[in-house]
Design a protein around this nucleic acid. Structure first.
Lengths: 213, 213
DNA sequence: GAGAGGGTAGTCAAGTTTGACTACATGCCG
DNA sequence: CGGCATGTAGTCAAACTTGACTACCCTCTC
């Protein structure tokens, strides 16, 4: 699962109806261009793709007031909303160690009811633990781990990473159960979109030192 | 940087000369089909691509003794060897939180001299720390992290992950400095390839529960 | 008032990845 | 002996990603 579908679908959903550039701006606002493949081409591609699949409806609209080519608005459908939730749930539940998917999922976690979020995260921990023990069992030869040589360090890395993530997930569960944040159906939601015309404090610009690529 | 080039180039290098199916088998032996995009199409594509770029030389050979289409052998060139080392060094040094690249790099780390491996890993830790502080500085608004709402959890995850990785890297440095494993130029190397005709104990088959995809 | 600069909105070709598919040979079973 | 499974080696179209590019309009400055 690539993060782009989730990000784009989620962004459109928060507006109800949005054009590509708006999505692109939201994602930039979230810093997504730094930690995911949210580049113009991918975003427009994903929009068209999901329109073709019936998750979004295309609306041609008049040229924008602010210059540039005519823009296309996308409206989310019933199926799109379902898919969006399905993607969030899947991303939260399954352990696949991809930062971009995880980050996107956390971004949308508050759309779910609080109890479900906790349940999914607990499921995630179970998944991590299952994965962990299957690695230790499956990849350690009978005659001791030394047989693996330095390759054992790869397993070591995986275990270390899995443990760190389980720990973090546990912490998040604690905070959510402790009442942090505002979840789906709990009144005034946290809105993570840019108002029409607002300036973007995190606009494209400097990269962090040590950035990938 | 995608892991596939490093994996394929490294696999060919360990044989000196290998055909696609052999590479494919080695990668499976390493479990790479589980944690990277090492699928047939990608492997053959990478081989052709790198041949075109002068990192490998293509040799047409007679049909195999064991049936199937005629196979193409690839021999690594001088430039290919250099590129291989460059990729390992880059993957070890730069913090980009991609499991597949990291895992591949560890697989080949022993090709380097021990002192260089340690130096690169220390560089990696510096990179992680730089990235960490740039995240904390850049993404925390002046009026306190609460402003971010649940989005702050994304930063939290990143920090947690970065810390875990720094810790693991530190541990690895310790083990290497303590004399573990056999590094480049230290005599009998660890050979991670399948002998011609050997059976593969880790052949494709069961997936781990909770696997991505 | 010409033109530089910047924001808006999106396209495109080239490259990469995916996963299903082909084609051939051997071994085995009844 | 027919046929089916298995192993070997690789191809292919479709989907996705990349990043540079177009085209338009507004504002500011000289």
């Amino acid at each position: 699962m690539s993060a782009i579908r989730l990000l784009v679908l989620g962004a459109v959903r928060q507006h109800g109806r949005a054009h590509g550039y708006q999505v692109r701006n939201d994602l930039e606002y979230w810093g997504a261009h730094e930690w995911s493949n949210a580049k113009p081409g991918s975003i427009y591609h994903a929009l068209k793709q999901m329109a073709k699949q019936g998750l979004l409806i295309e609306h041609e609209t008049a040229p924008s007031t602010a210059g540039g080519p005519p823009r296309t608005e996308y409206e989310i459908t019933e199926a799109g909303t379902e898919e969006c939730f399905r993607l969030v749930r899947e991303a939260l539940t399954s352990y696949d160690q991809k930062m971009d998917v995880k980050s996107a999922a956390i971004g949308f976690i508050v759309e779910l009811p609080r109890a479900e979020a906790v349940a999914l995260l607990k499921e995630r921990i179970r998944g991590i633990e299952a994965w962990r023990s299957s690695v230790t069992e499956h990849y350690v030869p009978e005659d001791g781990p030394e047989q693996l040589g330095h390759i054992g360090e790869i397993m070591n890395l995986w275990i270390h990473t899995a443990d760190a993530e389980a720990e973090w997930t546990q912490g998040l569960i604690g905070r959510i159960e402790g009442g942090a944040y505002t979840f789906g159906g709990e009144g005034e939601p946290f809105v993570g979109v840019l108002a029409e015309g607002a300036e973007n404090p995190y606009a494209t610009g400097e990269r962090h030192p040590g950035d990938a690529r």
